[in-house]
Amino acid sequence: MGFWHVLWPTGLFSNAAVVTAFRIGSAVAVVNAVVGVFVVIRGQAFSGHALGDVGATGAAGAYLAGITALWGFLAAGFSSGMAIESLGHRVRERDVATGVVLAFMLGLSALFLYLISALTETSGAPIAILFGSLFTVAPGMTGYVLGLSLSALLLLGIIFRPLLFSSVTPDVARVRGVSPRLVGLLFMVSLVVAVEESALVVGALLSTALLIGPAAIATKLSRQPLTSMALAMAIGVFTTWLGIILAYDSFLWPPLNRGWPISFFITSLMLLSYLTVQIASGRQRRSNAATALTDFGNLSTEREAWW
């Protein structure tokens, strides 16, 4: 089999956990791509990141209470998201409000994680919460994740234009009858869904990998929101699939039969794509500069000839 077993490992699709991972991973990547483009346009990356971090508190609480991690992620995300939205309106205020809420929630998660390690035998739970455990998600969650993702996409489709309007020229949008508060709040709802679902896949700490990464790459490459979103989806889904395949294959890597964390693969692939785009666009810029220089050179040669 040689090298190809890496990209097409034996038994990939006959493994139920892997199939679930593909389904959930794809849905999550798609939602995050779409929401991420708005996050980039609105300069809300910090809120997104904070919502992921506070998810850890919720998931730890859920673990203590014996319920599914996703509900914990969502509960913490929604309460923090609403707190952030109601505390801060402007970008600066919002960042300060986010910082305050984030600090409190992280303090709470320190307590929860301590309680988990003090009260239970498992040592894997904190790691799973913080860094993701896509292969351990119960297949029964697939329906919920798909439903949530579709709802978030639907919501974004409805508020698409007013959201864009109030992100770009908020005062003009208000004069035209858009309520930036309402639209911002509804966007926060879809942001929470995207980030907390993502926390399930790559973990609370890395949940913005699928949110910011593909969107940042896509917005560099395109000139319109919808094409950015399509491109971000492609990048996100592709990276997630490749991450899943590599993580599955890594069960054969040392230490044997343990498997490397899927988040490692996804974030590394994302960094790789981002760097590629950066370098490519840098080269583009340099070649533009070079063309300009050449033009200038031609100009001076012409001038010399003229002289």
């Binding site: 409805i158 234009r161 309007f165 949008a173």
Partner: peptide, 9 residues
Amino acid sequence: LGFDGHRFG
């Protein structure tokens, strides 16, 4: 956006 940015959908 000035044309139809205030519309939903």
